[in-house]
């Protein structure tokens, strides 16, 4: 008759052999019940006989029983892990997809190219201490013209063909207009505060002008104004240089030449070297090599006096530019009318 020890070894051998043939989790469970099941498992059945053995035999059989039990347990754990790994691998391979199919897109929104350009301009000036303010689009003749050294019948008014509002004062004059530039805010800001002034004014402006590829009747401008003791033309140059390099790149060349605006003296036209030809001359720059992007100058003493600043104490500079023109140059847009036609095909490109 075989001893309990022999039977234990026999069960171990069979169990491990059978475990080798187990192919899925169900069979594994079946195997576990067969050999390890608490009630009728073959190993527990054998173990139940242990207490009945004589002492000398019991020691040996007990040692053997522990060894077999732990061998089966670790074989079971190992097999289970292997089967689970195989199962996951199988599931994943069954779920394989065509990764070249398009993904689920989130709706993409976007900002208007004018907004983007305005922001870039503002961000370029902001570190130099310019604060953003905005002003009314429906303006008085006084702020748009008179206070800026452009009296009625002044030939310079030709530069700003004006849309007038249907409103008359006692003298039969039309005092209200759609501002032709953001410059009226120079006057409003200075009327409202004492120096130092350092503001940036983005905003919409209007012209009584037939539209074509380079003219809109409604567009945007950014005005800048800095007034304090000791603000000079040299500061104007430094400010605009800094802007140009932040906005257009560090190796951008800048040109300042004399120009005329009634509310500045001296007057300045600022140009940067052409993106297209880097100054050699091409169609974009009209063969000049330069792109005019901004008018500027030292605030005219007459304007300062009108707002109650003493021009002998305070000096300042002002500048103005059009974001559409800058966006057009950067993106090669050939027609300003795209900006406010609101064609999504255009807007969504930015």
């Amino acid at each position: 008759m075989s001893t309990l020890t022999d039977e234990l070894i026999d069960v171990e051998t069979r169990a491990l052999e059978e475990l080798g043939r187990v192919a899925d989790v169900d069979a594994l469970e079946q195997w576990r019940v067969t050999y390890q099941g608490r009630r009728h498992g073959r190993l527990p059945n054998l173990l139940e006989r242990l207490p009945a053995l004589p002492v000398e035999e019991r020691r040996e059989a007990g040692r053997q029983a522990n060894r077999v039990r732990s061998a089966l347990e670790s074989a079971y754990t190992e097999r289970r892990a292997a089967l689970e790994r195989a199962h996951v691998t199988q599931r994943l391979s069954a779920e394989a997809i065509d990764v070249t199919l398009p993904g689920r897109r989130a709706h993409s929104g976007g900002l208007h190219p004018t907004t983007r350009t305005l922001r870039e301009i503002i961000e370029a000036f902001r570190p130099m201490g310019f604060r953003v303010v905005e002003g009314p689009e429906v303006e008085w003749d006084y702020y748009n013209f008179e206070a800026l050294n452009i009296p009625a019948d002044h030939p310079a008014r030709d530069q700003w063909d004006t849309l007038w509002l249907d409103s008359e004062d006692d003298e039969g004059k039309r005092p209200l207009l759609l501002r032709t530039h953001t410059s009226p805010m120079q006057v409003r800001v200075m009327e409202a505060q004492q120096p130092p002034v350092r503001v940036l004014v983005p905003g919409r402006v209007f012209r009584h002008e037939a539209t074509d590829a380079s003219h809109e009747s409604v567009f945007f401008q950014v005005e800048g104004l800095a007034v304090d003791r000791g603000v000079t033309f040299a500061d104007l140059k430094g400010t605009l240089y800094t802007f140009a390099r932040r906005m257009f790149g560090p190796d951008r060349r800048v040109r300042f030449r004399c120009d005329f605006f009634p509310f500045v003296e001296p007057g300045v036209d600022m140009a940067i070297d052409c993106f297209g030809c880097r100054g050699a001359g091409c169609r974009t720059c009209g063969q000049s090599g330069w792109l005019e992007i901004m008018g500027a100058g030292m605030v005219h003493p007459g304007v300062l006096k009108r707002v109650g600043y003493d021009p002998d104490i305070y000096t300042g500079f002002a500048f103005g530019m059009g974001p559409e023109r800058i966006a057009m140059l950067r993106h090669g847009i050939d027609d300003i009318r795209h900006f406010y036609a609101n064609d999504l095909g255009f807007l969504e490109q930015f």
Binding site: A106, G109, T114, T115, E137, N342, L347
Partner: peptide, 12 residues
């Protein structure tokens, strides 16, 4: 814009 909308600007 972040919530998926496109900004437009029209003549006032």
């Amino acid at each position: 814009a972040r919530l998926g909308n496109q900004e437009t600007i029209s003549y006032p």
